[in-house]
């Protein structure tokens, strides 16, 4: 149980996917304008991450490894993720058109979020067991949402700030991300080793 908790905290806070592994930077910079859309995208991504971790773990250990097809790993994983995002999109459209409208274009873009493919690769590299993989996916999703929402909150305030001309847009966003990364380092002591 403690091990699972450690994996969860490590994935969501101390080794935050966005701020220490630089995964999922594209939506992090692109979508973090408003808190509402940040929360929506974060939750959708968390769901896809958890499911992707579950499904790719099963495929990797029950199909790719026994049949000696590990070299197909990247192609398989990306197909699983893409079809999963498609499935989530159809499901949300059928069940909750309102939510579907709010998320709009961000939904299909989850496929190219490197955090999800990165998650499945780390999961294989670290040899996680099945429950560990699920918790890892969930933790990474929560961490992604956390970073996205904090960033959106800061950027909403930033509209009123006086920023030097050349740094407007991407420049200042990256610098703020750097400061956030420093702040998150402060959590490093929670887990030793």
């Amino acid at each position: 149980m403690t091990e699972l908790l450690v994996i969860f905290i490590a994935a969501s806070i101390t080794n935050n996917f966005v701020l220490t592994y630089f995964l999922g930077i594209c939506p992090f910079i692109g979508v973090s304008n408003k808190i509402d859309s940040a929360v929506g995208l974060g939750m959708a991504t968390t769901f896809v991450m958890t499911m992707a971790a579950t499904v790719t773990w099963l495929i990797y250990h029950y199909i790719l490894v026994p049949y000696d097809l590990v070299f197909l790993q990247y192609v398989t994983f990306i197909i699983v993720i893409a079809s999963f995002v498609q499935f989530v999109e159809m499901f949300i459209r059928k069940t909750s058109p309102a939510l579907y409208k709010t998320l709009g274009i961000f939904l299909p873009l989850i496929t190219t979020n490197c955090a999800i493919l990165g998650l499945t690769l780390f999961m294989v590299l670290r040899n996680y067991s099945f429950p560990e993989a699920i918790i890892f996916g969930l933790g990474a999703g929560v961490g992604f949402t956390l970073a996205l929402v904090i960033m959106a909150g800061i950027r909403e305030e930033l509209d009123f700030a006086d920023i030097p001309e050349p740094l407007k847009g991407a420049g200042i966003t990256l610098i703020i991300a750097g400061m956030l990364a420093l702040a998150f380092m402060g959590f490093g002591g929670i887990i030793s080793g």
Binding site: L19, T20, F22, P164, E165, P166, L167, A170, G171, I172, T173, L174, I175, A177, G178, M179, A181, L182, M185
Partner: peptide, 22 residues
């Protein structure tokens, strides 16, 4: 040391983007 840490990556790239614009 900060330059090798993640924070350094973000800040350096942010400043480089600014420099590029100038």
């Amino acid at each position: 040391i900060v330059m090798i840490l993640p924070a350094g990556a973000f800040i350096t790239l942010g400043l480089l983007v600014g420099l590029f614009n100038v």
